[in-house]
């Protein structure tokens, strides 16, 4: 039948040619260049520190009593800050992730304050706060400002905010179904939290602890203002770098900087190594 446009006899319509898009290689190349540039910059800064100093400088720095004191105080304060941060971040993160309540958005915004505030402002605000009469009275019994507790408090202010963010994201990723099943099995809310939620969140807790520890180790601005920079008293590693730089001892400053880099890298590697087997320890059936 001439002119019959039946599907069995008609030829397929010519396809519109797809406009030629950019090559995938160019796309991957762009990604590689951008990522590579940043990684190169990071490694170059570490390499610059490494080549600036010598093992002799590092050894002399490690033998210095002031630097040994600052290493000890840094380790102690960062560990205490991490414990305190987790103590607060776990319940606050859980609260924000699981419950809807009046003022939740406001609480969320308030918890971001330490992240967005300039570090010096945090230190100054702490200093002013501890000049208020009730806290001044407390300081007569238990000195905080310009003493070791002020270092922990200054570190905690910032580190805890990061830990809260991490814990909130962790709990948001955990399905509430597990808690619900635990409730039907006979758990109370708190039993479900301790027996089911917390063990499931252990990798997130480890990440929050790492982040809090690393943030605390690098904290300087609030400590300078709130704790001062007194040798062998409120001297943590960033304070040492500052003090050594201020007297022109660049070699010692670089040596301590390297120590901080090694400590941060060691913590990251340790936590990632410890954390990974949790999901890969059981062979698939």
């Amino acid at each position: 039948m001439p002119g019959d446009p039946s599907p069995s006899t008609s030829k397929p319509a010519p396809q519109t040619p797809l406009p030629r898009g950019g090559s995938d290689r160019v796309f991957y190349l762009c990604l590689g260049i951008l990522a590579g540039t940043y990684v190169l910059l990071l490694l170059a800064t570490v390499a610059a520190d490494l080549f600036y100093t010598t093992p002799g400088h590092l050894w002399r720095a490690l033998k210095s009593p002031e630097i040994q004191y600052s290493i000890r105080l840094s380790l102690l304060s960062c560990t205490l800050t991490t414990i305190l941060s987790l103590w607060v971040a776990v319940p606050v993160g859980y609260l924000l992730a699981r419950f809807r309540f009046p003022g939740r958005a406001l609480l969320d915004a308030i918890l971001d304050i330490p992240i967005v505030l300039p570090p010096l402002v945090i230190g100054l605000s702490l200093l002013i706060l501890f000049q208020a009469p009730p806290l001044r009275a407390l300081e007569r019994i238990f000195p905080i400002t310009y003493a070791i507790p002020s270092i922990i408090l200054a570190q905690f202010m910032v580190a805890c905010a990061f830990a809260v963010r991490t814990m909130r994201a962790t709990f948001e990723q955990l399905s509430p179904r597990h808690e619900q099943v635990a409730l039907t099995l006979g758990c109370s809310r708190s039993q479900a939290f301790w027996r089911v939620v917390l063990p499931s969140a252990r990798r997130g807790i480890l990440t929050a602890a790492t982040l809090a520890w690393a943030r605390a180790l690098g904290e300087f601005g609030p400590i300078l203002i709130f704790s001062g920079a007194t040798r062998m008293k409120t001297e943590v590693l960033p304070t040492t770098v500052f003090l050594e730089l201020s007297i022109g001892n660049i070699e010692a400053a670089v040596a301590v900087s390297l120590l901080m880099i090694f400590a941060a890298v060691a913590v990251l590697v340790l936590i990632r190594t410890l954390g990974l087997p949790a999901t890969h320890s059981h062979p698939p059936s």
Partner: peptide
Amino acid sequence: APPGQRGLGFVPQDGALFEH
């Protein structure tokens, strides 16, 4: 009554097993 006191067993779609 709270879920645990209803005497009901519950099996969700994905099983929701406790990974630990």
